[in-house]
Design a protein around this nucleic acid. Sequence first.
DNA 1: AACAGACATTTGTATATACAAATATAAAAA
DNA 2: TTTTTATATTTGTATATACAAATGTCTGTT
Lengths: 151, 151
Amino acid sequence: MKIEDEIKSTVALDISKKIILNVIYTQNVITDNFNEILKPFDISGEQYNVLRILRGQKGIPANMCVIQERMLARTSNTTRLVDKLLLKKFVTRNVCPENRRKIEVLITQKGLDILKELDPKVIEHEQSFSRNLSSSEVEQLNNLLEKYRNK
Amino acid sequence: MKIEDEIKSTVALDISKKIILNVIYTQNVITDNFNEILKPFDISGEQYNVLRILRGQKGIPANMCVIQERMLARTSNTTRLVDKLLLKKFVTRNVCPENRRKIEVLITQKGLDILKELDPKVIEHEQSFSRNLSSSEVEQLNNLLEKYRNK
DNA sequence: AACAGACATTTGTATATACAAATATAAAAA
DNA sequence: TTTTTATATTTGTATATACAAATGTCTGTT
């Protein structure tokens, strides 16, 4: 569906505006869809994102800065995000012995387990969208987005 | 900058995942940038969006449903959004005389004025991104996004 | 050792959002 | 006319987020 129809626009849109709306709207579709997947697991998209970062650390503890700079949306509150994960016992949190300003966050087995359970659903989610495009179109879309956003 | 670098990814990403991250990240860049523009005007992106919808009505009152279905992100709380605009006197709100379940929302002159002041800044914002692409690439990006998100 | 400045994280507060339940009105059915 | 169902919006509550200020720790300088 064209973006004008999605937002029931009555006037013709400038192409520059159309792209903006298209990117925002597409992101909404993706995340709404993804939240549906996460809902039964009682975990938010941001929390999932943090767990993924921690798994990617392969056992190396991550401190708050590291988590923050790897997140998609730089939130101002990594602390409370990790709090939630701690409550659910998906992570552990300890003061770093070498530098006590830092916090070492690690994913637990329980955290790894929930990620493992989610993995196939997440892959299916990702592919369900890219299946709409040919493999060269997928490449193109990636390149165009990267080129587009660079200020 | 490539998305892997933006999120400091250590592992190679699957192309389907890369697109997702690229769309989300690009949307973040766009909205962060846009919020900077809005900040001095003490108005949020959502509030701006509602004002645009109301201006598009060209004097025809909009009720809550209409506003909601034209918004990019279907928020569950149009009421409180309109409340904020009402406080700033950017809109008026009245019970619809024909159907008293409905609410008629109209943009005020003050609302039109702030939009007018924002117009050139918004256009510059939109174009600053699309200037990175040729006109055929802009078309392509639009088409690919529309094709991509359709489930 | 004492101090200044930088760094990493946390907390306070105000605002925003999500979701469910509640209210109010209208239209249709019994 | 009363009851039921649908529609439109609002409210309550819990959670999330943004931004600034505060806390605790470290490093280098005097």
